[in-house]
Amino acid sequence: MIAHALIFYLLSSITILSSIMVISSKNTVHSVFFLILAFVNVSCLFIMIGAEFVGMILLIVYVGAVAVLFLFVVMMLEGNFVKVKQGFLQYMPFGFFIALVIFFELIIIIGSWQFRPEFIKTAKIAYDVKETNTVQIGKLLYTDYFLPFQLSGIVLLVAMIGAILLTFRRRDNLKRQDILKQSSREREDSIELVDVESNKGVKVND
C-alpha cells in the first residue's frame, strides 16, 4: 500500500506543479507542454483508481488531439504575451483574495460532508467489479443515460454547424477547377474558323 501512496503523491504533485507552470511560464509553447504533462499525470491518477477507460480517453482526446491542436495554434499565433503577464501581476492580489474565499467555502463544504455520513448513503451507482468499466460505462450510456448521450451528440452537431456557418465564406473572384466542365468541352466551343478579309483583321472578343 505504501508504494501505492508514494506513486499517488508523486503523480499528484507533478500534476499540481505542472499546472502552476502552465500559467506562469513565459514561453507559451512551454505552457502547452506543461499542460500535456498535467493531462498525462491526471490520466495516470484515473488509472490508479481503477477508471482505466476515463484515463485512456483523457490520453487520446486531450493529449492526442486537443493539446496538439493547442500547440499548433500557439505556434502560429506568436503574439506578445508580456502585456498580458503584466495585467496578471496587477490582478494577482485580488485573485488570491477570491481564491482564499473559495478555499474557505470548500473547507465549510467538506466539513459538512465529512461529519454527515448520511449524505453519502444515497449514492446508488451499481458497481460491478467483474466487468471492466468500459463495459459498465457503455451499458449506462445506452440505457439510463440514453437521453443525455443523444443530446450531447446534438450539441456537438450544433457546434459544427455554427463553426462552419461563421467561418465559411464563398469567394467569387477565385478561379476554381471544374473537371466536368473541362472534360465536357468540345472543339467547337473554343475554336472558331474565320475567313479573314485583307486589310480588315479580326475582332477578338475578350
Binding site: 450539441v155 457546434a159 455554427g162 456557418l165 461563421l166
Partner: peptide, 30 residues
C-alpha cells in the same frame, strides 16, 4: 429540453444546446 428536464444533466444539456445556437445567431452577420 430545458423546459421538460427533470434531471440536472438533461437540464444542463438543454441549456447548452440552446445557448450554443444563440451564440452562433448573435454573430451571424459576419
Amino acid at each position: 429540453v430545458m423546459i421538460s428536464a427533470n434531471n440536472l444533466i438533461v437540464f444542463y444539456l438543454g441549456l447548452e444546446l440552446q445557448s450554443l445556437c444563440l451564440y452562433v445567431l448573435a454573430a451571424i452577420n459576419t
